[in-house]
């Protein structure tokens, strides 16, 4: 602990100032390295290196773990762009993004607003509303598999109760309904998260603004459109960024509930990559999908960054 101090404290009669500065700087560099090293080494092994390795693998034909890799350049990418399933997966991924931004976030906002509504039992609502976000995705997936069960499931039971037996569907095993069923569950899981973000945002709005608006005769709706909504814009923007980035990574729920089926109807880049890598063991092609996932996430984040900078330059949210 005293080491650094001793070096500084030594009477440095003969040593010139430039040497002292250099030594100080070297010391500083050493200190910084020691502080950062543990995190950086683990991060480099499990995050940075794998991205480069994935790109390298994607340039190879590599059909099983035992066989040798053969370099084939960008042939895997050509195959990928002609792969109908990959395009379906990409489309589904963007559907998840779209639903997250335009259903989850608005629903989260409504739920947050309910927590400030003049009704009784707010505490109960608050507690229950947030619960879905606390369950593990695997547990959520399994629970909803049974809710969607064609015979014993809640959804069809509900339809029977309402007297519309005709509408009963095998939700997860029909191409036309599987995607929407899983999307409903995603909304169920994540709307509470956005509720919390909005709740924090609403708490931050000064009460005086509403008082002033009331004096000016603004009704509740006007107060919402002129005060609450504009002031929540920063939260809406950051929520959207979280939703977009998160949705591109989605995997667990789809893997558990449908495994990408029926007939690739709910395939995502993640589920498709997993199948290629760990079921078919086409590691080269799977790496190509994996690297595309990285690339797409990178492009999307870059676009968001540019838009953010533009917005900041203008200095406003609207």
């Amino acid at each position: 602990m005293q080491k650094e101090l001793q070096i500084d404290a030594k009477p440095q009669v003969k040593v010139g100032t430039s040497v002292k500065v250099k030594r100080n700087q070297w010391n500083k560099l050493l200190t910084i390295s020691l502080f950062v090293a543990p995190a950086f080494i683990i991060y480099a092994i499990y995050v940075i290196y794998p991205i480069f390795a994935t790109f390298n693998y994607s340039l190879h034909e590599w059909n099983s773990m035992q066989s040798e890799k053969t370099f084939i350049g960008f042939a895997n990418y050509v195959e990928l762009f002609n792969d109908q399933i990959f395009w379906t997966a990409l489309k589904n991924n963007f559907l998840v993004v779209f639903i997250s931004v335009f259903v989850q976030i608005p629903l989260g906002l409504v739920m947050a607003l309910m927590l400030f509504a003049p009704i009784r039992g707010i505490k109960l609502f608050n507690t229950i509303y947030f619960m879905p976000f606390l369950m593990s995705t695997v547990a959520i997936g399994l629970l909803w598999v049974f809710m969607f069960d064609p015979i014993n499931g809640t959804m069809n039971q509900l339809l029977r109760m309402l007297g519309v037996e005709k509408w009963q569907v095998a939700w997860l095993s029909e191409e036309s309904t599987a995607m929407w069923s899983v999307l409903l569950v995603i909304v169920w899981q994540f709307a509470p998260f956005y509720m919390i973000l909005f709740k924090a945002g609403i708490v931050g709005i000064p009460e005086e603004l509403y008082e002033a608006a009331q004096i000016d005769g603004a009704n509740k709706w006007k107060q919402f459109t002129h005060i609450t909504f504009p002031l929540l814009m920063p939260t809406i923007v950051s929520s959207s960024i979280l939703a977009i980035v998160g949705s591109l990574k989605t995997f667990d729920l789809f893997y558990i509930m449908t495994g990408g089926g029926p007939n690739n109807a709910t395939e995502l880049m993640g589920t498709y990559m997993f199948k290629q890598a760990f079921q078919i063991f086409d590691m080269g092609y799977a790496s190509t999908i994996a690297f595309m996932m990285f690339f797409i996430a990178f492009i999307v984040v870059a676009i968001i960054q540019v838009m953010e900078t533009q917005r900041r330059k203008k200095g406003g949210y609207l």
Binding site: G270, A277, A290, F294
Partner: peptide, 30 residues
């Protein structure tokens, strides 16, 4: 602390938040 690569290093760490886990899966497995 102020040092030259501070910002770069920070961004490298932060970038991990947007990274899809899938793009590291096969090398980690190997």
């Amino acid at each position: 602390m102020r040092f030259r690569l501070n910002r770069t290093l920070f961004l490298i760490f932060i970038a991990g938040m947007m990274l899809p886990i899938h793009s590291t899966l096969i090398p980690t497995f190997m």
